[in-house]
Write a protein that binds this DNA or RNA. Sequence first.
DNA 1: CATGAATGAGAGTTCATTCAT
DNA 2: GATGAATGAACTCTCATTCAT
Lengths: 195, 195, 195, 195
Amino acid sequence: MGEKSIQKRKYILKTAREVFMDKGFKSVTMKDIVEACEISRGGLYLYFESTEQIFLEVLKMESEEGDDVFSDSISDDATAAEILLLFLKEQKKELLRKKNSLTKAVYEYFFDNHPPRKENVLKKEFDAAVLIIERLIETGVENGEFVCEDCAGAARNIMYVLEGLKISAQTIGITSDMVDKELLYILRSLGVGME
Amino acid sequence: MGEKSIQKRKYILKTAREVFMDKGFKSVTMKDIVEACEISRGGLYLYFESTEQIFLEVLKMESEEGDDVFSDSISDDATAAEILLLFLKEQKKELLRKKNSLTKAVYEYFFDNHPPRKENVLKKEFDAAVLIIERLIETGVENGEFVCEDCAGAARNIMYVLEGLKISAQTIGITSDMVDKELLYILRSLGVGME
Amino acid sequence: MGEKSIQKRKYILKTAREVFMDKGFKSVTMKDIVEACEISRGGLYLYFESTEQIFLEVLKMESEEGDDVFSDSISDDATAAEILLLFLKEQKKELLRKKNSLTKAVYEYFFDNHPPRKENVLKKEFDAAVLIIERLIETGVENGEFVCEDCAGAARNIMYVLEGLKISAQTIGITSDMVDKELLYILRSLGVGME
Amino acid sequence: MGEKSIQKRKYILKTAREVFMDKGFKSVTMKDIVEACEISRGGLYLYFESTEQIFLEVLKMESEEGDDVFSDSISDDATAAEILLLFLKEQKKELLRKKNSLTKAVYEYFFDNHPPRKENVLKKEFDAAVLIIERLIETGVENGEFVCEDCAGAARNIMYVLEGLKISAQTIGITSDMVDKELLYILRSLGVGME
DNA sequence: CATGAATGAGAGTTCATTCAT
DNA sequence: GATGAATGAACTCTCATTCAT
């Protein structure tokens, strides 16, 4: 497969991504993707053989282009609290974004496909995030920014709350204010005043 | 509709419930339900006209038969902490229950169907639960069982963590120990020692 | 499946039979049969799930309705030579019948599907025919109608020649005269004069 | 067409031959051949325009490279019986060869394509073989090796039996012993003792 | 009420064939 | 000459939905 094909692959993945964002995972058919891409029925099969394969590659692409919140645009002398705040704000933006998110599709996919723990991308990302937050809190505690007896516990708590907010956003609906309240609650728990 | 028909409706709903627990919402077809119920194709249409209608009625039935944790089997002189613990244990049992739960189906359904806030069953249940927990914590604070500055915030935090655990159970997988850790973290936040 | 369905099954099998006679086995699609039967696409699948299944049932029907040459229309006092002649004439009629024969389809099917010996319908029929002819020749020998040192060998020889004629009819083409010549040769080998 | 192209044509035909031996005629697609040859889709069309054309050229190549049993490796002073035996052995080898034979493909092709008699390759070969065997038998009779009243009939009988054995080998299955029995029967009919 | 046969729309998939490079 | 991406026709199969009985 030449240079040209690689471009087309990417084009298909990007277009399919839109479709998944719009319709989730289960409802998406090869036909949907064919039509969104404006290519021929058989054409799609030259590149991919199922919506599942396409979806997994979309996810891979997603994580490769990685929106690494923690490394992007953070000044070197930022405090732990500042970094955590930035992270939470990023998460808020993401979870309020109704249309521009793969969240629904990801959940739908993983509802029916439980890869063995070790290979579960979602789990890996979750664990990685917990670890990072834990380190961050520890740093904050050392600097006197945070108060916290169980940093690992606090980190996990934060992640589960975020998961809860994410799923709530997709099901019962959620507003900016509601998210703010939760995030403030979390920060206060860490002893951060809201002055 | 005679008595007989009402019985049959219930029978169909109960049987369909099993199907939804097994396959979620989106993948369930009228055919699946017809086969599970061992009735005729046309027969099902006499009672229901779509999987959506069936699913919504299953949910209604569910909440009517309401497993009201807070009222069932609680001695009148139970302490707030005891009641909260009971509730959390109940939630744990539910979210570890792989096969016997409508969780997946509910999420799948609400991903695509955002009824206006006021009518969203999920939201109502969520809010109701928050309220009850809030009261419970307040009572606990008055009794000196809990320490808590923002009871409403704590209640919401608990519910979001539970949501986070629920969705995690369905996607990345979760063990009994992992749930325990989170619940303990919550209780400690309320100043409950684990003696 | 009620009485009605059984009729329809038969109707489909009969119609499909025509299709197989016309196109052999491999080229026949479910669509061909659907169109020949003038039923709906899905309708056919209510009764059969593949052309293979249909074909095998056509064959079964065929052998059940058995054109039992040896039992039909044979007077009780017929001589062995008469019966053999009748049989050969029947075979001749069959193998000259260009359009009205499943021969091609049968060969095509068995080219790709070698069931274990024991279950091979073709083999069973072949062996049965050999046996019957063998008996017939033995009787003829006893009656002084035939001369033959190796009745079993002669019987097999006859069947293989018939097979050879059948396949030749379908490939290189064959005329009535050509068949006659072979049959006469066989009869002469058995010492039957052609007066 | 240059030298190079001629080589490539031959290469394609040889490779396609393998494919036909493996899958018969009808099931073989241009794609199959393209893949077996490891050339490009378009490339194949530069040389051939259909599987039919390819198949016919394979057959032509086959008969040109002619496995002339009667001329190969026969000492000049071989008796008629020896030559006939050699021929029959050759045929036996061929028809027991499951995988390395075009038999199935040839039959499949000629089932659907009855070229006018005069051009039918199969027929020509059949008739030629009959003639040669007839001559052989005549020679044998003159030499006192064979006893036979109708040499032409005997020759045709042999060829039809061989056809019968060939098709049986492809459909109901046949063993070395079974072939031997038939060949012996034929030879005995010619008055050849098996000493 | 209940049945289940029948229909037809629609999704999946494979290939023959073409054509720009 | 040679390539292989692209197209579109043709098939397979599954269901939601209807309707005569």
